[in-house]
Amino acid sequence: MSDAAATGAAPADAMIVMSHVEKWYGDFQALTDINLAVRKGEKIVLCGPSGSGKSTLIRCINRLEDYQKGEIRVGGTRLGDDARTIDAVRREVGMVFQHFNLFPHMSVLRNCMLAPMRSLGASRAEAEATARALLERVRIHEQAEKYPAQLSGGQQQRVAIARALCMKPKVMLFDEPTSALDPEMVKEVLDTMIGLAEEGMTMICVTHEMGFARQVADRVIFMAGGAIVEEAPPQDFFSNPRHERTRKFLGEILHQP
């Protein structure tokens, strides 16, 4: 557990602070005493077995899930119940989903322009310029007029990343962005994420791509049973896991073909 979170004092440049967060689905406790402080520019990889609460944790950060105890602060704003704060936080936090969730009835370009225009009040011209620039950055600008169904999975996921970036977020959350992709498309998405990391984006990535974790993560966090079991820089995490459950988990995922 990080010292800062345990003492309740977050580092001054903390983007996200979760302190003593607990969440239940009815009687089932999905998150137990989550303490996590993410500094500006930090890259966190979150891993753990299925059902361990990884998605739940990151979905609490942009309030797609509510929580019952503890506190979450995003960029200094306390994430409570009122809609204004929630919307404000969501505008600063981008999210990329496992299944892309592009809007099927809009072109790629319109997918990217929608939220800046409707949520940030950008003009059409501004939104289009931003969208085209970011589509170019994920190397998909030639497909701007196409519809999502006309793209491959890897292309769709890159559009989803561009769409989130169009909001100029301060933090990006990724929930298993490559696990719905055919193997040959994983790399193009990971490369996009690596590029983003190199530019200094604050990122929390739920992924089992351990090569990615080694390359970009500042810290790897391992969850099991709704709690954070272990966190360490990648070299320590992989070479010297302290907990039995972490060792077992690493054994399972690293020995996959």
Partner: peptide
Amino acid sequence: IGKGQIEAGLALGLHRGQVFRLIVLKP
């Protein structure tokens, strides 16, 4: 309409009414 569509809209900072009007209604 899948929950993922609604969540993607909310995550982009759109409020519920906008999500319905702009994202859910046409499909």
